[in-house]
Design a protein around this nucleic acid. Structure first.
Lengths: 123, 123
DNA sequence: CTCCGTCGATTACAGGTGTAGTCATTACTG
DNA sequence: CAGTAATGACTACACCTGTAATCGACGGAG
């Protein structure tokens, strides 16, 4: 069961900190996305229905927390993109991206360190 | 106007070689995706409507060709992912991906060469 | 010249998604 | 104890997407 883009915005809030009440989630995302309160509540319900989050009763309200890790979501999205567009290979992705955008010296340095670490088998 | 996943499959066929007739596009993708002929035709119509492809009459049929480059599509998708999940930065993406998947020595080597080239400012 | 087959155009339709309003319950406030 | 405010549940709805069938026009075969 896939988490949609709008739902992911709500997940991001919960990944940033949790548990949160619906009201707190609304405070985190509604204004930024230009959403009404009920929209956020709908998204919470759908996420609950697809078991992407859990809700624990706390008096008259619920406390929501993620049930899937951001790491897993990010990894799935990344793999999907790589598979669809780069035959699953990382290097071609990096190649095209660096061709399209001028990377800062810092970014390049960071990549360098990363690759060095990979070469040394340090993981 | 966004190209959807199903539409992208048709685009891929046209990026591989073009121009193609509808029949040729169908031959390229229908079986592989388990689609009927009419499904492919619908996708061609929608791509035409959103100007992602062009059609030139050739006797009684049309010859279709891409109107947006694969490069541009791939770049947009990539940037979207990076922006959504990695604050637009390449290095964190590479970091998480290499953590999730064991890269082959060849892949690592390829990345190394790429980064070396970037460092030398060769672009 | 007529009939038939081939194409693209048009229409269809269910399920997903974004976005939001209304309802019903429940717990405080007075 | 009753009324009100807050909160989650339910309902709504248009547009998008995947998937496909049917229609109408036009060109080629006989």
């Amino acid at each position: 069961m896939r988490v949609t883009d709008a739902e992911a915005k709500v997940m991001e809030a919960l990944w940033r900190s949790s548990p949160l009440t619906a009201e707190q989630v609304i405070a985190e995302v509604a204004a930024g996305e230009g959403w009404s309160e009920t929209t956020v509540k709908t998204l919470l319900s759908r996420l609950l229905a697809k078991k992407a989050i859990a809700a624990k009763r706390d008096g008259r309200r619920y406390l929501y927390r993620p049930r899937i890790e951001r790491q897993a979501y990010v990894a799935a999205e990344s793999r999907d993109l790589l598979d669809r567009l780069f035959a699953g290979k990382l290097a071609p992705f990096v190649a095209q991206f660096s061709e399209q955008h001028d990377l800062s010296a810092e970014e390049i340095e960071e990549l360098h360190k990363l690759v060095a670490k990979l070469k040394s088998g340090d993981r």
